[in-house]
Amino acid sequence: MRITLLAARKAATPDARSAAAGRILAAVAELLDTVRPQRIASYVPVGSEPGRGLEKVLPAAMYPVLLPDRALDWAGGDLVAGQMRLLEPSGPRLGTSAIATADLVIVPALAVGLDGSRLGKGGGSYDRALTRVPPGVPIVAIVYDNELLPSVPAEPHDRPVTGVITPSGGFECLPRHPG
């Protein structure tokens, strides 16, 4: 499933990705107006991941720093080139537990099921980080339209998301019943 989803992302034209990014950023801005979070933890899109430009609508967010053990540290500040060829925040490191202080968490996903199950890339970094998020804090995944599916494989350690943003559907609370 991961291989198929990644291939579909790479096959999308730059124009299609750009149009999707604009609609996603508008949906994120609308979500912020509704939720009014004080502290946000968000991912930094890489490659063909949806959400290009999130830092424009989330300038004060905490962003992840991938540690050698694949855990996620968090920091704020401008995004700069990091050690692992990823953009990472330039501010002081806040520690792996800083995600627990967020009142909105925006995460990447390869796919999301209507029940809130999240399929990541398989490295486990976000699965481990999400265990630190207190119950009741919204966890929102951003995916392309074709990546919101009736179901996705889930393991016992996977933490579900409570919402999803797609280019065509905007923000939607989960779980949703198929049909």
Rank of each mutant, 00 (worst) to 15 (best):
T34D: 12
G76L: 01
L94D: 12
E30K: 09
G123A: 08
A141C: 14
F171D: 10
L72N: 01
R2A: 09
V46F: 10
A154H: 02
R23E: 12
S168G: 10
A41Y: 01
V137W: 06
G124E: 02
L66C: 02
L79G: 07
R36L: 11
P108A: 06
H177W: 10
V143K: 00
D145G: 01
Y43F: 15
I142T: 08
L32A: 08
R36N: 09
A111G: 04
S18R: 15
G123L: 03
G169N: 07
H157Y: 04
V143P: 04
P175F: 04
A20I: 02
A100C: 11
P64C: 03
V137H: 03
A98Q: 12
E172K: 15
V112A: 12
I99S: 04
N146R: 12
S18E: 15
V137D: 05
I106G: 10
R39D: 04
A11L: 04
V133H: 03
E88A: 06
A109G: 14
A26W: 03
L67M: 13
L79F: 13
K121N: 05
G136H: 13
G170W: 15
G91H: 04
G179C: 05
S42E: 02
P64K: 03
R118P: 09
V105W: 00
T166Y: 04
I142H: 10
P14G: 14
R132W: 02
P178G: 09
L54F: 13
A7E: 15
L32Q: 14
R85Q: 13
A154I: 00
S42G: 07
R93S: 08
I106K: 06
K121V: 00
A11H: 10
Q83Y: 15
S97V: 09
S48E: 12
V65E: 01
I40H: 05
S48R: 06
I106S: 03
L58V: 09
L114D: 07
L87E: 06
R128A: 14
L94I: 09
S97N: 07
G179F: 13
T101M: 09
M62T: 01
G77K: 05
P89R: 08
K121Y: 08
P134A: 14
D69H: 12
D127E: 09
V44K: 06
L25E: 12
H177S: 08
G113R: 03
G77D: 14
V152G: 00
G136M: 07
D15I: 11
L130C: 01
R52Y: 03
W74R: 02
P108I: 01
V57K: 09
T166I: 06
P14F: 12
K56V: 12
A29C: 13
L149E: 13
H157Q: 11
A98H: 03
A7M: 10
V164S: 06
G120D: 00
S42N: 07
G120N: 03
S42K: 02
L114A: 11
R36E: 15
G163R: 05
E172R: 15
D158Y: 01
A100R: 12
E88H: 05
V80M: 06
G136Q: 14
L104E: 09
I165Q: 01
T101S: 15
D69L: 05
A71T: 07
K56N: 15
Y144H: 11
V140C: 11
M62P: 01
G124A: 02
F171C: 14
D73G: 03
T96Y: 00
R36H: 14
P138F: 14
A129M: 05
A41W: 04
L87V: 08
P153I: 00
